[in-house]
Design a protein around this nucleic acid. Structure first.
Lengths: 346, 346
DNA sequence: CTGAAAGCGCTTACAG
DNA sequence: CTGAAAGCGCTTACAG
């Protein structure tokens, strides 16, 4: 154990704002104002302070700042890791949220696991976080009542049934479902199948899945188009069964909508191994993030993951700035044509 | 805009430790000691305090605590999102780290993006985090010098070339490579192909990929076994080319090692569509987390993601407790037989 | 076993 | 345009 890393490395007393003030020949308050810009500071003084900060390597103590200003500059991100969710999308959300938060001078605290309400309580009531963003919100989400009690600025990614007093942000999933069907219907398709989210996601009553299928079926009904759906599970066997079931239910299926990121590559492979030409024999529309490689060959309703994440942070920052905020922000879906749809019939 | 959510919701002056003290008829310090356990508090007093805390819904102010105690109870997790990394593993690490951190009464601050050294600086020098865990460490990682300067407790997941004074934790990737070859060699295989990490990962000089291949080839050489490798990219076309190239280079290939999580399902599908029986005609060993569904049909060298993540946090906590810590902790790989290997020859 | 007090390092009215 | 001072809400020696 002779080679062990000698540890403590005590938080060596850092440079404080008073040190900076002394070296620059000003009062600590002036340093503070120079840093925050909340009061005008004369050019020469400001320059002197900036130079001193640089020289001494001064960094404001986060805790002290939080205590005095009543702002931690921390945003809590609750990201439950539930079965059936497509993890890369979660990470893309997280990255967008971190990036946008940083641009508002905030850091992001990551809460995972099932701690739900307890985590919210600890982090918000203890003033560890100024605000919170909740991901993967269910229709009847247990975190909602807690969130309301806390009375902290928050944004939910998703729409719970009871959203009184809360701010929500999401893709307009119903419009996405409509768009998928409408784009195919206008090409002349009359029998459209959907491979959707895994059963686990539906059973959990995650709103987006239901809103998407509602939009899709409703638009189909409005246009006299036959639609049918099967859940998408992540094995070839189940995928094959689902495709066969759709073909059987919709005799003469000419178009397929895939709302399941994990399955897109499998669908492509399966169709090609069956010798089904896309779009010659079957039109395919997928619902996936713009960034997803496997989806790059398919016409799709793109999920603007980065936009949603950034917007969520903006909404939370506006609340911190005491601005009025719309209770529901739904981002419109966009259809990106990548050539995998065509009029039906060979 | 009449329906807008009325915002500010000012951080309504919370209950403080003095409030609790007054209501319980004790000094604030006694409340503090009752909470921290750093001093004995008589049973009746402790009970009174606990009841009062419950009644008033008291939560210590994180910033005040950090300022007074010089501990933020926050662990920073640097998770660069680089191309070629398998995102679900990152999330599994993150989840394990959050869970273990919570069990040590710490929360996790998430740093992504390329902020590298700047992020470290801000978070550690500003006392926002007590310690840091770095993921996806490269052999010549630019964050290493900064980390050393900061002198904060830290653990690197991975082994940089220069690790003087640093604490590292990882799977023993070289042993994993040896184990994969040894297990096949002992069955009698003499020509073993490897589908490895994507080119992007190798080019970045991420140490684990090189250590794995070094171990694999070296063990092969020691045993007089022919080995060859190709990078694994995420499309069927490239996978087919790689398999063909391996078969050509190792005429009479009887075993395949797959060290690429994203590709495991594709490999299985491709082999089955080629009519190759596993393990009858080809033995397959994959290197993947135990939790990965697609790998559940293959004999594998399992990556103990959760163990590594938890251990990393333990190592960082030991440093915070001023304990001596081994500079390098390598977790041994484990072979899990799931029946996809057999002696060669039909 | 418990209390009174100093101090952690900032921000922000209050003065000038 | 700038300074002196109070205060944010805790923890931890110092006393008893």
């Amino acid at each position: 154990m002779a080679s062990d890393v000698t540890p403590p490395r005590l938080p060596r007393r850092g440079v404080t704002i008073s040190d900076v003030a002394r070296h620059a020949g000003v009062a600590p308050s002036t340093v503070s104002y120079a840093l925050s810009g909340k009061r005008t500071v004369s050019e020469p003084v400001r320059r002197r302070i900036e130079r001193t900060i640089e020289e001494l390597g001064y960094r404001p103590h986060a805790g002290a700042r939080a205590l005095a200003s009543r702002r931690s500059q921390i945003l809590a991100l609750m990201m439950p890791l539930r079965t059936g969710v497509y993890v890369p999308i979660l990470m893309e959300f997280a990255a967008a949220i971190v990036t946008e938060a940083r641009s508002h001078d905030h850091d992001v605290l990551l809460l995972t696991g099932e701690s739900g309400s307890a985590g919210l309580q600890r982090v918000a009531a203890g003033a560890m976080a100024d605000a919170v963003v909740l991901m993967d919100v269910e229709e009847d989400d247990t975190r909602v009542p807690t969130l309301r009690e806390l009375g902290r600025p928050a944004v939910l990614l998703g729409l719970p049934d009871d959203r009184q007093g809360l701010v929500c942000c999401d893709l307009d999933w119903e419009a996405a479902g409509r768009l998928a069907v409408a784009s195919l219907a206008e090409l002349g398709h009359r029998r459209i199948g959907l491979i959707g989210q895994p059963t686990a996601v539906h059973e959990r009553h995650t709103g987006f899945a239901r809103r998407f299928t509602d939009g899709l079926h409703d638009e189909g009904a409005r246009r006299g188009v036959h639609t049918a759906q099967r859940p998408g599970e992540a094995t070839f066997g189940e995928l094959r069964a689902a495709l066969d079931a759709l073909a059987a239910e919709l005799d003469g299926l000419t178009a397929l909508v895939v709302h399941n990121e994990a399955i897109v590559p499998l669908v492509l492979e399966e169709l090609s191994s069956r010798g089904v030409e896309v779009p010659g024999q079957l039109s395919v529309v997928c619902v996936a993030p713009q960034t997803m490689a496997a989806a790059s060959r398919l016409t799709g309703v793109s999920i603007p993951v980065e936009d949603i994440g950034r917007r969520a942070v903006q909404l939370v920052m506006q609340q911190l700035d005491a601005a009025d905020v719309a209770p529901v922000t739904l981002l419109p879906p966009r259809l990106v044509d990548r050539g995998s749809t065509a009029p039906p019939g060979r």
